[in-house]
């Protein structure tokens, strides 16, 4: 019994069945092309996943050796980090890319336990680099306005 593999196999089967069901809603938009149904190939792939997941289930159940269970380390930090990432993703258009990136960087380095002073220094230094390289040198455009919707300028 390998619990990790059983878990992932079951998860894959659930997702695959959902994908199979949703593939019933694929509608061809043109009569110009005569080809296989758009759902044919995704179903082939999904079928393959289900087959392989079942095979994995069977193997995991009959496995004689108990593989070392997945080491999770400080797993609780992962959702925190993901949160910090999503914070930037959903805030940078409103806060401007620099303040929002700064906040996320500081948060991420707080999660990785960088000392606060270093943390603030590196975050700011990094943004200076981003400005020099991406904005000045490569002339890329980023949203830089602060609260554009709130301040009525969109």
């Amino acid at each position: 019994m390998r619990r990790g593999e059983i878990l992932i196999a079951l998860f894959l089967i659930v997702v695959s069945v959902a994908a199979w069901i949703s593939s019933a809603g694929f509608v061809a938009e043109t009569a110009m092309v005569r080809t296989l149904s758009p759902a044919f190939y995704p179903r082939l792939v999904v079928g393959g996943i289900i087959f392989c997941a079942l095979l994995m289930l069977v193997r995991a159940r009959h496995a004689r050796t108990r593989e070392a269970t997945v080491a999770w380390g400080q797993w609780y930090k992962v959702p925190l980090a993901a949160g910090a990432m999503f914070l930037q993703v959903f805030s940078f258009e409103e806060l401007g890319v620099f303040p929002s990136a700064w906040i996320s960087l500081v948060l991420l380095m707080w999660i990785t336990r960088v000392r606060l002073r270093m943390n603030l220094l590196i975050s700011t230094g990094f943004l200076v680099f981003v400005y020099l390289f991406f904005v000045l040198l490569l002339q890329l455009k980023f949203p830089t306005e602060f609260l554009p919707t709130l301040l009525g300028r969109d």
Partner: peptide, 16 residues
């Protein structure tokens, strides 16, 4: 100062 600068520039860019 840096933080305030960033926000200031941002606000200025979007001031009415």
């Amino acid at each position: 100062l840096a933080m305030a600068g960033m926000i200031f520039l941002g606000v200025q860019a979007s001031s009415v």
